[in-house]
Amino acid sequence: MDVSLLIIQTLNGLQLGLLLFLVASGLTLVFGILDFVNLAHAALYMVGAFICATLTYALGNFIYAVIVSLPITAAVGFVVERFVARPLYARGHLDQVLATFGLILVFETLAHMIWGPAGIAVPLPPALDGQTLLPGAIEIPTFRLVIIGAGLAAAGGLFWLVNYTRLGMLIRAGASNRTMVGALGINIQLLFSLVFALGAALAGLAGMLIAPITEASIGMGNSIIITAFVVIIVGGIGSMKGAFIAALLIGLIDTLGRSFLDDLFGLFMSSDAAENAAPAVSAMLIYIIMAGVLAFRPQGLFPPKVR
């Protein structure tokens, strides 16, 4: 096994894990506080990427585009909360799933109408576009390091926001007992809208960060949203800590599984059999792990204490 390949793939896994955390944290925040299952989170991820792509060309710089796109994506989330999510809070999860499924269709078609059927590539500024030399003569695209840095910064910011600010205190209180928070004179409606907008901005940020690598495209959110669901199931729905740990775990396992599973299988079966089995198993690996976790802990690894 090649050590530098192992380091590169570990960094790639970390990058995937942090992107997953950005998507999953919004999902788990909205579910924990609003008791609302939001499939359309995938659409917000896509919307973030498309808005950022457009603004990159309009403003001429990817970084400015991200800064301007964040509040716009949050605003989209705010509007979605007001007109689609709010009437559904009192309904069952089934209705929420179906309505937000419809919302995905609406958003994807709107994106198709506005931006066309093809994906939009997002150019990076020269400073971020090259390779960075790590110790041990390992070359890695600079932008991947930027994603890791931005993901860690966002996670840290979120941790600070939830644990050390007044808004965060209200969010935690709302997750424990929203009726009580409302009774104490807090504008719970506004709190919900803000949480939803925050989740949208986080999903949008993940979309913006991945866009220069994969380009902004319709349906880009559909694969990551399922993985994000796996993350919050494994972590425990509603738990921010669980989402963070599970996201890194899933990101690393998925990436490392895809590159090293055939070597691992080669240790105890013929190399032909290993080559045939490895792709199938590595594609299903995170689901197998999810099943394993749920078989022993149906509430996930870190279930929130009060629900």
Partner: peptide
């Protein structure tokens, strides 16, 4: 073994497992 929204998501995830398989 799971309830409510866990059940929704885990059935979805297992289907996706078959898909990727």
């Amino acid at each position: 073994r799971t309830r409510g929204v866990y059940f929704i998501m885990i059935t979805m995830a297992f289907a996706q497992m078959v898909y990727y398989g």
